Amino acid sequence: MNRALDHLYIFAMVFLTAYSQVVMRWQVGHAGNLPVGLPGKIQFVIGLLLNPWVISGIIATFFAGVSWMLALTKFQISYAYPFTSLVYMLVLASGVVFFRDGVNAGRLVGTAVVMAGVLIIARFG
């Protein structure tokens, strides 16, 4: 049972990282186009950094790092690291659901291959 609970560190990292990426995409999309001049770019970035949603994404990234450190106390990196690819799958699915990003056969097949790889490592790793 402890080994199953140890995986929560990995899955917390995956969820927090995916959350951060989706929130950043959402808020950058709301912020509009990046201005051309340097002063406008600086103001644009400062505005994003003061946005509560962006701050939550930064905090999530920090705690994803903490979760990853805790996971590495329980697992070899060669076992744990492939699970990071689950972030890609969550972000891909979130992009489709929330942002109507396009998905083609290549992305679906690639995602299935990655998922199969993670399952094999989780089962036999």
Rank of each mutant, 00 (worst) to 15 (best):
W26T: 06
F15Y: 13
G102T: 12
D101V: 08
V103R: 07
V23L: 06
I55L: 12
V114E: 11
L48P: 09
L16Q: 03
F75R: 08
V36S: 15
A71L: 08
F44N: 02
P52T: 01
A12G: 13
I121M: 05
A71N: 04
G106S: 12
L49K: 08
V54W: 02
Y81K: 07
F99C: 04
Q21P: 04
R123I: 09
S56V: 01
R107Y: 15
Q76T: 14
I58F: 05
A71P: 07
L86S: 05
I59M: 10
F98L: 02
I77E: 14
L50R: 09
S94C: 09
A60C: 07
G106V: 12
T111M: 15
N104C: 01
G110H: 08
Q76W: 10
V54A: 04
F63Q: 03
I46M: 14
A60P: 06
L34S: 12
S20D: 05
Y79C: 11
L119R: 03
Y88V: 15
P82Y: 00
Y9H: 13
F63W: 04
L50F: 06
V113P: 13
L48I: 03
H30Y: 14
A122K: 06
V103W: 08
V103Y: 08
G47T: 00
G37E: 12
P35D: 05
V36H: 15
Y88G: 14
L49P: 06
A122D: 04
Y19W: 05
T111V: 08
Y9V: 04
S78L: 08
V114C: 07
Y79N: 11
F75P: 08
D6G: 10
L34N: 11
M115H: 04
I10P: 12
T61N: 14
V118F: 02
A80T: 01
Y81G: 07
M1V: 00
G32T: 00
R107D: 13
M13L: 12
G47F: 00
W53L: 13
L16D: 05
V36N: 15
P82L: 00
G125P: 03
T17A: 06
H7T: 11
V22R: 12
L34F: 13
L90W: 07
N51G: 01
Q21C: 05
G47Q: 01
M24Q: 11
G32P: 03
S85F: 10
V87R: 08
T61C: 07
G47D: 03
F15V: 13
V114Y: 05
R107Q: 15
L90Y: 11
P35Q: 02
Y81S: 05
G65Y: 10
K74D: 10
V114R: 06
V14E: 09
G110A: 08
T17G: 10
G106I: 11
V118C: 05
I120F: 11
V114P: 07
M69V: 07
F63K: 00
L86H: 06
S67M: 11
S20R: 00
G65V: 07
Q76S: 14
G57Y: 02
F15Q: 15
S67H: 08
G32M: 00
G47E: 01
F63M: 02
F83Y: 09
G106C: 08
I42T: 09
M69P: 06
T84N: 14
Y81R: 02
M1I: 00
G47A: 01
V87G: 02
A112F: 05
A71R: 04
V45R: 08
N2C: 10
Q27K: 09
S94D: 07
G47I: 01
G125F: 02
V22W: 11
